[in-house]
């Protein structure tokens, strides 16, 4: 009984973790290239969720088809915020960029509140589901999972097989050297910020396929916190690391519930959260480059 439950939870955890991982790649990319922690991360996920919701409700567009729209919107927002704020803060203290990204998040939340009210909304796609006996998986979740892997893969190919991607990697390795080699470092910064935000907005769309309800302007906060843990698991500066970090996180969060539930007097769900933050600290202490990196 308990093993059946545990295996069901773990499978659900992997799928959820894949989507979480995708939702963290943008954060890691931006940190990796610009060394900026995007504290307003969750707000961009929220924007993506609204993109999916509005397109579905007003035009009847299926959520997967909202991805390109989200990508373009996200990249445009990224460019906008890079040139108006982030660019000027790159050389400043951490404090400045932390506060700026936080404020950007607040702006997005408040604008969305004015546009869509603070009502929690959702959409109903109505796909079928797959019954595995020990657990049930709706197809929309599987599509979200597949989509996350696909996006991760595309990002990998772009980084390793295209000139633009390789240029960006060279900036991560050594921005001064890259500048000497004739790469426009400022443009690379702008591009990575914009891609990072684009990915995050896309992940918002994919997340609604996992959870199509409860969409509201302030939904991003808990995703920001999760993304921090996941990014650290994956080494903070590595987008693929983040993806695997997400998988590990999903497994731990769902797996540890079943274990904590055996201890009387505890609230297992809150304890899984506690556990994930303890893990964050332990990893930062013993292996700040992340669980999965060998270097």
């Amino acid at each position: 009984m308990i093993f059946e439950q545990l295996s069901g939870n773990l499978l659900q955890g992997v799928i959820l973790g894949g989507v979480y991982g995708m939702a963290t790649m943008g954060l890691s990319l931006i940190f990796g290239v610009l060394k900026v922690v995007n504290v307003g991360h969750g707000a961009f996920i929220m924007v993506g969720a609204y993109v999916a919701l509005i397109l579905f409700q007003t035009l009847g567009i299926a959520p997967p088809l909202a991805v390109p729209v989200a990508l373009i919107l996200g990249m445009a927002l990224g460019m906008l915020f890079y040139y108006t704020a982030i660019k000027k803060l790159l050389k400043g203290p951490e404090l400045a960029s932390l506060l700026a990204t936080f404020s950007i998040g607040v702006i997005l939340e408040e604008v969305c509140k004015q546009l869509f009210t603070s009502e929690a909304r959702g959409y109903h796609w109505g796909l079928d589901k797959l019954d595995l006996g020990f657990t049930v998986l709706p197809y929309s979740k599987l599509i979200a999972f597949g989509g996350s892997i696909l996006v991760g893969l595309l990002l990998y190919l772009w980084f390793h097989k295209t000139r633009a991607g390789m240029a960006m990697r060279s900036v991560v390795e050594d921005d001064e050297g890259a500048g000497v080699c004739g790469i426009n470092v400022d443009w690379e910064y702008a591009l990575s910020f914009s891609i990072g935000i684009g990915l995050t907005v896309v992940s918002g769309v994919l997340l609604t396929m996992f959870i199509p309800v409860g969409i509201n302007p302030y939904m991003g906060g808990s995703y920001t916190l999760k993304a921090f843990v996941i990014a650290v698991l994956g080494g903070l500066a590595s987008p693929y690391g983040a993806f695997f970090g997400g998988l590990v996180f999903g497994l731990i969060e769902n797996g540890s519930y079943t274990l904590f539930a055996q201890i009387p007097g505890l609230e297992p769900f809150a304890m899984t959260r506690f556990f994930s933050f303890v893990m964050l600290l332990v990893i930062l202490l013993i292996r700040p480059t992340g669980l999965l990196r060998t270097k």
Partner: peptide, 25 residues
């Protein structure tokens, strides 16, 4: 830890502590 790692670790402490208070009652 330094820089962003320090900032994230301290967020972790705050959230972790809160969930500990709630989870362990």
């Amino acid at each position: 830890l330094r820089g962003a790692y320090f900032a994230i670790a301290t967020i972790g402490v705050n959230e972790g502590f809160r969930y500990f208070v709630e989870g362990a009652r």
